[in-house]
Structure formats: C-alpha cells, structure tokens
Nucleic acid binder design. Sequence first.
RNA 1: GCGCCUGUAGCGCAACGGAUAGCGCACCAGCCUCCGAAGCUGGUGGUGCAGGUUCAAUUCCUGCCAGGCGCACCA
Length: 559
Amino acid sequence: MQKNIQEELLALVSRSLVKAGLDRLAPEEIILDFPMALAIGSQTMVFQPTDNRFGDFTTNIALKLSKLLKRPPREIAAELVEFIQKEITESELKDLISQVKVEGAGFVNFYLDASYFYDQLGKIITQGKDALRLDAGKGKKVLIEFVSANPTGSLSVAHARQAAVGDCLANILEFLNFSLQREYYLNDEGNQINILGKSVQLRRQELAGEKIELPENYYQGDYISEIAKEADKQKIKDAGLGDFAADYILRIIKQELSDFGVNFDCWYSQKELAKSGKIEESFAQLRNKGFLYEQDGALWFKSTAFGDDKDRVVIKSDGSQTYLAPDIAYHRDKFNRGFSWLINLWGPDHHGYINRIKASIQALGHSPESLSVIIVQLATIFRNGTPIQMSTRRGQYITLREVLDEVGADAARFFFLMRRTSSHLDFDLEVAKKQSAENPVYYVQYAHARICSILRNADIRIKEDMDLSVLAEKEELSLIKKLLEFEAILNVCLVTCDPYMLTVYLQELSESFHKFYDLHRVLGQGDALTCARLELIKGVKIVLSCGLELLGISQPEKM
RNA sequence: GCGCCUGUAGCGCAACGGAUAGCGCACCAGCCUCCGAAGCUGGUGGUGCAGGUUCAAUUCCUGCCAGGCGCACCA
C-alpha cells in the first residue's frame, strides 16, 4: 500500500520535472520516464526519510540536479515544488497529501494527510493478514534447498542456523505468493556413508570384546556405539551397516528438525538419483555441448567456460565420481521438475563451490540468475560470554538438540535469525534463556501478550461507525506508520533473500507499542477513544502475530 | 598467495548514498493505589587507518591494518 503511493509520487515528481523544464539537462539515465526514474544508479529518488519529521516521503532530485544545472539545490527545489503542487491538485493524490515543503539542503518533503493512515489501519483491521500480502511471486515455482547435512551424526548449530533461515525465508516467500517447495538433499551413499559403516563395524567388534583402533577420519561419537548395539540386536550384516546407520541417524535428524518447527516437502535421495540414470543423462548433454573432456585418465567439466578458476573433475582416474557429478545432475533435475528459481543455502565452506555449480547450470542452458546461493555464516555458541570450542571430527560439537533442550525453539529460531545471514553470529545460551529485556524474543512476545491482556479486559463493544481519526497523539500516529512499514520490510527480505530484517522490524514495532502503552491508556477513556485504541492495538496484534508466524515463533496470549 | 565474511560506545548489534549515526546490556538517576514493570523516561559514551568518487560516505571504489572462514581427482 505504501509502495503504491510511493510509485505515484515518483510518477508525479517525474511529470513535474518535465513541466518545469528541468528534465532536459539531466543525463540519459535520469530522464524521468517512470520506470527509469525509480532509481538513479542504485538509489531510489522518492523514499521514506529515516526521521518522519522530514515528511512521510521525500525526494532528493533537486540535490541530484544541482551540479548539472549549475544552480543551488534549494533554488531548483523551490521552482520544482510549484509544479509539484499544481500536479497534485490535478491528481488523485489531492486528498492524501497535506503539505509539500522544501527543507534542509534542498529536499522536497511530502506530508501525507492523517486520513490516509487511518484508512490503511482500517484495512488491516477488517482484512487481517490478507491486507498485508503482496503478490510479488505471482505463483512462480521456487525450490529452496537447505540443511542437506550428511546423515552421519546429529545436526550441529551450523545446520540449525541454516534450518532457521531457510524455513523462515520459505515462509516469507510463500506469504508473498511464490509457489514453493522445501527440499533436503540426502547424501545417502558414497564415501562418508562407507566410513560411517566401517565406524559402526569397528565399534561392534569392540563390543564383542575385540581390541580396536579407530582411524582418525572415522566417526568417533558415542552414538556410533549405540548404533552398533542396535545393529547387533537386529543382526545386520557388516555390508549393510552403512545404510543401517544412515537410516538410523536420518530418523534422529528428522525428529530434531521437526522439533525445531522445520518440515521438508521432499527428501531427495542421492542413491535414487544415481540409480535413475540422470547423472549419465547430464553427462551426455554436457558432452554434446562440448563441455566435457578427458585428461590424465580423468573426465573434466569445462567450468572455466563460465568464469570458474579452473576446470573440475567429475570422474576420477580410478573411475569413481566426484561429488560434483551427482550435484550437476541434481540441479539439472530441479529445473526439469519445473522450478524456475532455485535457492540453495550452503555453509561458508561451500562458497568456492558456487562458481562451478553455476557454470554447470549455464552449460545446461539456464541463466546464472535462476540459482541464488545463500551462504549462511557460522554461529559461535557462547556460554556466559565464553565461546565453546568445537570439533566435528571428534564428535564434540553443540547440537541442535542441545540448543533446543536448553533454550527452546522460539528463542533459538529468533537468535539464529537476528543477524544478517552473511554475518557471523554470536549465540549466548545463557542470554537466550533469560526471560528479560536482554532477550529480544520476549520483548516482542511480551508486546503481543500485553495486547491480548488488554483485549481480554475490554468490556465494550466496538461500534460500526467508530472513527479512527480520534487517534491523534504522536505515539498513536507513529505506531500506525510503523504498522504500514510491514509490507516494505517483507519486500526487503525478498530482495536480499534474508529474513533477518523482519526480526529488526518486529523489535521496532514492539518498541513503538510499548511506548504508546506507557503514555496512553486504552481502557476507560470514553467510548469513542477507547474503541479507536482497541482497534489500533488489534492492528498491532495482527501485524505482530503475522511477523512472528513467518519467523516460525509462537504468539503467546499469556506468558 | 587467492577468495568470501566482518571491523560503529566497555560488550553485542542498527542505520535503501541523505538531514542531529540509533538500540540493547553494563553504569547513574527516575516511573506501578491506574489496561501485564518481561515495560517506560532521562544521563554517560562511538564510525580501524589512508586516499578516491559525490552537493552529501558508516554505506560505494582502491590500498593498508586486524579478526573469522574457505581454497582437493573429500563429501
């Protein structure tokens, strides 16, 4: 809703520039033809100022034109503003805009009429969450693949962060009307599974009383012995131990994810992929296009044709495949299943992998933009300010399970999401457990619970003809304006492929509500005002609850 | 050596290239006979260094310094 008015203002400013004769001297890229005028370089021309003392929208075009026209920006702005005012009186924005002023260094600031905000609030209250939806996706088919950890042990906190980010991003995209599928690529055969099987075999021999020596690259954790016991009970043969252990661990992983609130639509098996012949099909296709060649007894993919540093081996000189081989086939298959946008969440150790996989999809005829790879940086777990050292190999690492047991799914999800995905994250278990202001999860949930409490205590009936315009206090208006930012925030999440901005927004919205609450009573203010304030906090509840739901966090009515 | 991420207040973090750089913790001083004090108000305190682009740089570019991670015919 805000976006529309922003676009209308942009068009209006563009028309005014033309009429003022100020457009001709501008360079090609800022000729103010509407779609082009959206941005100069990467900058938006009409935007919301950070401080609403400078209006609800502002344009910096006079500053931009200053040099080209060799005139002071305020002078240009003053000239322009006359044309803008004339345009406004002739447009549909007439009743929405109360003032247009030149301020500061030469900004032209637009002040919206309060009736606009009351109307928008009214829409949220009557339509609920539907008023917050934007049809950004238009049903586009998206496949988001994340976690995809090898089934060789419990999920670590690195996987946990990926799970939180991936699931939340998926929620947001679904809300924005993308047709989306969540997928987990299951590495259920190959080297790691063989090693897993051998690790279990050795532990079984140990249980039988033999003396064993566990090689360094074998899985060491206690859970291996547990699996060995179980395998013994079920009389599994040595050759089947790898698959048995992988199945056993996969069940644990599924349970961990489900307890974390993350559910996948599809578990894509590498074993099945290998059996299907799709790897050979993708080789054939690459070979036809001239992107495969043999050298030193190995088969190479010519990834340098698409900007990779060096070509990559797909079949080793010993005849076995590298990991890249099934992965090329896997991504080809994603497109073949009808998805037009692929999102992959990978750990930072995979970032060197982006170029070669993008090369492969290009070699197979897809645009590199149709794959978005999001690198999810690691999280360091702290306890009382001290980092906990981890070693995956020795099976000494903090697991998702431990974090869940200790701080719960709500706090864990929020903490994993509250920093930019591309940034390292410090996660202090003790802070996440605290039920205090230090803990932002409770700050947001508390705002929700507080609203519910007021609504429970309210004993008056909302009248049909109630009038929101009695909400004229500063805190009331800024709370309404905050509510209306929600859509723009979801749009930011979409563009950045990062849900973290939503956590920041919900904290700001909660702050705005707590400030309002502290200064103004809702109940017992006379029918007109109390009704309007009840409607206002209902609006806040709708947005808070929608935001928390997208994060995958509960919305408690009492706490 | 190459690549990715990060340097903002004592600590953890915000700020589409915009107007007086915000918030939490900690520290100091206040606010509940009144809808939930898990809250609110005030105070102290800051952009790693050097250039460049711009009317405007925490933001973009280059170099340097510091920290984290990754660089296989492993997966």
